[in-house]
């Protein structure tokens, strides 16, 4: 069954472009050009995910999101030209699940849409079958028994060293590891002298598990301190 996505933006061309991308990926797309329209569409149709702009006439994205959240818990992705941290925080706090700034990378948008849908759909049926050797952190799952890593249910290929680093960080989710600590843990050698080996590996891991490596969801860089995986 095709999943339905509501795209709401006052710029018709943007709505059009997004719907082209999504339709290409096999989604059904509903269009709305302001908040009120979006609410009407929602009343009459079953929608699986909403992409909504903030700055719109009549009813803006923030208020629309608040109204939607009164009834529905489907994933909402805010798509805005406002890139300030404050805007992002506001959007995420009032109930949005993701925040994408314009101008966006179409591929990233699609990836995020898929990611949100996977989590929303799988949220119900992942539960009981968790063995001892499985570590979870948000959409990130590591099965240490067969050395497999899943991001939002998708299998990711990592080298042994990358796997070990990720496992270390996920096992100790929330803890910050400095480069030297990671080096000593993984290579079992004392870290001597400056070497950006660890940093390079981390970047490679991020490129594999993150949708946008510059704004990582899982493997976060604490600049000037070290690396960590956020506890979720």
């Amino acid at each position: 069954m095709k999943q339905t996505i509501l795209v709401c933006d006052d710029e018709k061309e943007i709505v059009e472009a997004i719907s082209i991308y999504l339709q290409t990926e096999g989604f059904e797309v509903l269009k709305a050009y302001d908040g009120n329209e979006a609410l009407k569409v929602l009343e009459n149709n079953k929608v699986d995910l909403i992409i909504i702009d903030v700055m719109m006439p009549e009813l803006d994205g923030i208020h629309a999101t608040l109204k939607i959240r009164e009834k529905l818990d489907i994933p909402i992705i805010i798509l805005s030209a406002k890139s300030e941290d404050a805007d992002k925080i506001l959007g995420l706090n009032i109930g949005a699940d993701d925040y994408i700034t314009k101008p966006f990378n179409p591929l990233e948008l699609v990836a995020r849409v898929k990611s949100q849908l996977r989590r929303y759909v799988q949220l119900g049926n992942i539960g009981g079958s968790v063995s001892q050797a499985v570590y979870k952190c948000g959409g990130l799952t590591i099965n240490d028994d067969n050395k497999e890593v899943f991001v939002d249910g998708e299998l990711i290929k990592l080298t042994p060293i990358e796997y070990n680093i990720l496992l270390l960080l996920v096992k100790n989710a929330g803890k910050v590891f400095s480069i030297d600590e990671i080096f000593e843990q993984i290579w079992n050698e004392e870290a001597i002298g400056a070497d950006n080996t660890v940093a390079v590996h981390i970047r490679h891991i991020r490129e594999k598990i993150e949708i946008n490596p510059r704004e990582p969801r899982y493997l976060k860089v604490v600049w000037g301190v070290g690396y960590k995986v956020e506890k979720q």
């Binding site: 941290d85 400095s178 480069i179 400056a194 070497d195 950006n196 080996t197 660890v198 940093a199 390079v200 590996h201 981390i202 970047r203 860089v221 600049w223 000037g224 301190v225 070290g226």
Partner: peptide
Amino acid sequence: RMEFACIDMAELAEQAGGEFED
């Protein structure tokens, strides 16, 4: 807005080195 914290400059230089290796 600045959120000051204790940062290891050496660590940061290494991290940056890793980021820019490619």
